[in-house]
Every structure is written in C-alpha cells, then in structure tokens.
Design a protein around this nucleic acid. Structure first.
Lengths: 166, 166
DNA sequence: CTTTGGTTTCAATTTTTTCAGAAAGTTTAT
DNA sequence: ATAAACTTTCTGAAAAAATTGAAACCAAAG
C-alpha cells in the first residue's frame, strides 16, 4: 500500500470508528489527520485536507482541545495557530476514558442515587431495591477502578495486563 | 420517591444512557424494564408498558437475546414467550464488553493490519509507521486484556480492583 | 481608529438514526 | 389443512445529530 493511500485509509477508518467510540466522525478524522501529520497543521490546512467547513473544523478542534487530545502551537512570526495531536496512546486512552466516564458513568450514578431514595418497603419492593443496589455497587466500583486506572501510569498498565494475559 | 415513579425513572434513565453506551434507547429501556420486573413479561406486555410498536419491540428483544442480555422462558400451557433479563451485573457487563469489543476494537485492529502493509520506506514514512505501530501495540494489548477480563470471574474483578482502589 | 488575519457563534440544512405500522412469514395446536 | 398467536422484514415518517455558510467578533499592526 502507498503511504498516501495508507494515511487516507487510516483517517477514514479512524473517523468511521470514532462514531462507535462516542466521538463524532469529524472529530475523529481531525485527530487522525494530526496523528499522522509530520508537522503541525493550521485550521485552514485541516479544512482543506478533510474538505470540511470552517465552523465544523473550528468546533471540533475546540472539542479536541477540551478533551486534551490536541494542543495549539505557534510559529514565530506567524499569527496563525497550529495544532498537534497528543501522540502518546496511553495519554489518548486516558483522555477518552475521562470523557466517557463523565458522560456515561457519572450520570448513571447520579440517577441511581436519586432512585434509591425510594421509600416504600412492601415485600415486592425488595426485588427492585436489590437490583438498584447491585447496579449501584457495580457502577461505583467501575467508577473507582477507572479513576485508579487514570492515575496509574503507562508502565503499570502494561505490567499488570501483561501479567493478566499470561 | 414512590416505587412506581422510581421504576419509571430508572427505565427512562437507563434508556437515555443507553445511547451513549452504544445501545439504542428502546433496547436499553426493554432491558431496564425487565431488570426491575418481578416476573417475566411477554412481548405484548413490553409493548404496552413502553408504548412501542410490535416491530420495534420484536427487533430489540431479538437483539437483546443475541447480546445475551435476555432469555426466553415459557409458561406451561401458554404459547406466548416470556422474557427475563440477565440480572447479574457482572454478566451484563461481560455481554456489553463482548459486543463493544467486537464492534469497536476488532475492526480497528483489522484496519491497522491492512495499513501497516505500507511499503514505502522514505525517512518521512518512519513517523507514520511508528504511530501506526504504537496504536497497534496498544490496541492489541487492550484487546487481549479485555479477553482476559471476560474469562475472569466476578470475584477476581472485585478483588483486583478493590486492591487497586486502596 | 481602521484594516487584516483569524476565530467563534448560530440559524438553516443535510445526513443519519430510530421507529411505527403494514404486510408477509412462522410455528403450533386442533 | 386451517386458524390463531407470534415473529420478521419493509418502508416512509419523524426525530436527532452533524455540517455548512455567513455573519459577528477579536486582537494585532499600521
């Protein structure tokens, strides 16, 4: 496969996958583009390369910066802003986990807390109570585990899981 | 909060959350409904309860069964099929991880393999090569870890992560 | 203060996803 | 074989999400 074709394919695939990862297509494409770009790119270059509008480009660049997956850089004597991607996969993963945890897990915990303020104590309620408690226990455990994972460093992760794999 | 209100809220919230979990709303709602239902429900009861069409109900019930989150049960002397939800949260999590791994991780690995068949060897390619290799390494590690996790049992999970949490 | 290069916001539009309802297909009991 | 009870597959409508394009905005340089 040719280098250019390969890059193209990577960008497209990463974009397609993005959607199932809770990231929208453009956002994922921009990230992919910058991952394989040898040098920082300006917003205009990104628009050009991916054939997207200014507004779209800007919004998603902002979002990626918020997520911590992109950084601004400046070139001396140039007023444009240039962008580079976080290339350390461990960091990338941490960013993604952080965001998804915030959007997927934490709202769940919040709802469960509200729900478990259910006051009835009829025998029939016990079943319901139990299900909710179970989910709550499990979710908070997962939540805590992810927090720990986020604090851990790359080596720890690799080490632990290599052990797991054997 | 009242029991009925609580159940209602749980179903709605679980449904809303479902979307960010890569599960569609109806599918998540059916699952939630059955999680908190004291007894097995028939397709008709599910339709009634969630105010959804027969087609929709059927499709999503099928999907849930495929995922392994729902089971059929039969009542003697009744031709109807009744459904119950998998209530062990550990199992639920395993089902979800299995599916998402299939849909999110494995296609990624496939693409990466195709891409790394890139043949050019100009100095500029090295950077690209490296990024792809990095992602590949990381992804297959994650993939393997998840496989291990899926084989592990609930106690192991809780044990390990309790240790992590401290 | 005005121009220039660049960034941000937002209503309107397009694309994608989800769903109801109809219709066709199965299965099972008689 | 037929009828009754369920299931599956479509299609078009509706809802939700993503994108565009334009206008508004800002900061630096002259």
């Amino acid at each position: 496969m040719e280098l250019q074709a390969a890059k193209q394919k990577f960008i497209q695939s990463w974009g397609a996958l993005g959607s199932s990862w809770g990231i929208n297509r453009t956002m994922a494409q921009i990230h992919a583009l910058l991952l394989v770009a040898p040098d920082p790119l300006s917003a205009d270059e990104i628009m050009e390369e991916l054939q997207i509008s200014r507004g779209n480009a800007n919004m998603n660049i902002r979002a990626l910066i918020d997520w911590g997956l992109l950084f601004k850089t400046l070139k001396t004597g140039d007023r444009k802003e240039y962008f580079i991607a976080e290339k350390d996969m461990w960091e990338v993963m941490k960013c993604i986990i952080t965001q998804r945890k915030k959007r997927e897990l934490e709202p769940m915990l919040k709802v469960l807390d509200e729900i478990s303020a259910v006051d009835g104590n009829a025998p029939e309620d016990q079943e319901f109570e139990k299900v909710i408690q179970d989910i709550k226990l499990f979710s908070s455990k997962a939540d805590a585990s992810l927090d720990t994972l986020l604090k851990a460093d790359s080596n720890w992760f690799i080490g632990t899981f290599l052990k797991m794999i054997r």
